[in-house]
Amino acid sequence: MGLKENIQAVKEEISTEEQFLEGMIKGERFFNRNKKYIISALVLVALGAGWYAINDIMSQQRLKVSNEAYQALLKDANNTTALETLKAKNPKLYTMFIFETALVKGDTEALKTVSLSKENPILADLATYQLSQLDLNATPKGELLAGMVLLQEGYDLLKDKKIEEARLKFAQIDANSPLKQIAKNLEHYQGLK
């Protein structure tokens, strides 16, 4: 009985080794058939990882240089080298700096430049709104702050006791706007305290 069990164990062991060798042969055949595709995929993954790493390093370097230029501009707003560096390395931060200095100085030309900028639409809209506030004859309306402009115009009309014209301005404010409730309150109290 021991001999039969030993023979059976040897057969099972040989069967397991055969299956292992068979799997290795199938794997080798698969690799040989698809060697070009496997190597191409590995090369593409390596190139993609390398490109990502290089792009990340370059982005960090650009960020560092633009931050240094911005710090230099905060210390000396007339530093033209830092201004040009900021414009080249980080156009959005450059536009923000121009907007900030234009607000401080009341520079309408710089605000017009920022309002025409395509770098930051929200900032361009804020510049458009600031222009309308600085130049009372102008009526530029931004896309995002149109409700605010209408609210301001309606309030000015209420102060001049032009109730019906103010109601027309308030009616133009979008119903979903958070400013609509303020407009309703102003309309109800007619600007009185």
Rank of each mutant, 00 (worst) to 15 (best):
G2I: 11
L3M: 13
I7W: 06
I7S: 11
A9H: 03
E12K: 13
I14A: 11
T16N: 10
E17N: 12
E17F: 12
E18N: 12
Q19Y: 06
Q19M: 05
L21T: 10
I25M: 08
K36H: 10
K36L: 09
A46M: 14
L47V: 15
L47N: 10
L47C: 15
A49G: 15
Y52W: 08
I54G: 04
I54N: 03
M58Q: 07
S59N: 06
Q60E: 03
Q61T: 06
R62L: 09
N67E: 06
Y70H: 09
Q71I: 07
A72Q: 05
A72N: 03
D76L: 06
N78Y: 07
T80A: 13
T80N: 12
T81C: 03
T81S: 14
L83G: 05
E84M: 08
E84W: 02
A88F: 05
K92A: 13
L93P: 07
L93W: 11
M96I: 06
F97P: 00
I98C: 01
F99D: 02
E100N: 08
T101C: 04
T101I: 07
V104L: 10
L111Q: 03
L111D: 00
S115A: 10
S115N: 01
S115K: 00
L116T: 05
L116A: 13
E119V: 13
P121T: 14
I122M: 08
L123Y: 01
D125V: 01
Y129H: 04
Q130H: 01
S132I: 01
D135M: 11
D135Y: 04
P140I: 14
E143T: 13
G147I: 01
G147F: 04
L150Y: 05
L150D: 03
L150H: 03
E153N: 03
G154N: 00
G154L: 01
D156Q: 15
L157G: 11
L157K: 15
L158N: 09
L158H: 11
K161F: 09
E165P: 08
A166W: 07
A166S: 13
A166Y: 05
L168R: 15
K169W: 10
F170V: 05
F170C: 05
A175V: 11
N176K: 15
L179D: 12
K180A: 15
K180G: 10
K180P: 04
A183S: 15
N185C: 11
L186N: 11
H188W: 08
Y189D: 15
Y189I: 13
G191E: 05
G191M: 06
